[in-house]
């Protein structure tokens, strides 16, 4: 039996993943997340008299804090399974992967455990954020200054 013949048999057997359902769920959850974040920002601006930038920072800190707490309580991974990218794409995904790595390596010590492994999953986000911001900065400089 060749590889192709085998793959044909498997393709017939393997279950179809319902992508559409996942897209719809993550679309609405993503929208809801945006709504909550906007609401928080507006509350900080209107009721606590913070500047726009400070409100955004405070909102991000709160979202990250809640994500990390929920990850620690073992709730967030179950939510991600249901909600998908809607819950995962913003800063929550970064917080979730960082916290879960920290929890995972706690037993191996603070330096070689948590310290060495905390960015195991989210390290590539940091690396490529820095690299891409350099290039975007360069492009911006070239367009605006020259």
């Amino acid at each position: 039996m060749t590889k192709e013949e085998y793959n044909n048999i498997c393709d017939k057997v393997m279950p179809k993943e319902s992508h559409l359902k996942r897209y719809v769920i993550s679309f609405f959850i993503g929208g809801l997340m945006g709504f909550v974040a906007e609401l928080l920002t507006n509350i900080f601006i209107n009721y606590f008299y913070l500047s726009y930038n400070d409100s955004i920072s405070l909102m991000l800190i709160i979202v990250i804090f809640i994500t990390s707490i929920l990850t620690g309580l073992g709730v967030f991974d179950n939510l991600v399974e249901i909600c998908g990218a809607g819950l995962f794409i913003p800063i929550t995904g970064f917080a979730h992967s960082t916290t879960s790595s920290a929890l995972e390596y706690r037993k191996e010590g603070f330096i070689f455990g948590i310290g060495s492994n905390i960015f195991k999953l989210s390290g590539s986000v940091i690396l490529y954020a820095v690299v891409s911001s350099f290039f975007f900065g360069l492009i911006r400089y070239l367009l605006l200054e020259i």
């Binding site: 279950p15 991974d77 939510l79 991600v80 399974e81 998908g84 790595s101 195991k120």
Partner: peptide
């Protein structure tokens, strides 16, 4: 945790 991801890390699982 050895073969895949940290225990608390969530992702959408495949049916198979």
């Amino acid at each position: 945790r050895q073969y895949r991801n940290p225990v608390e890390y969530g992702y959408q699982k495949k049916k198979y």
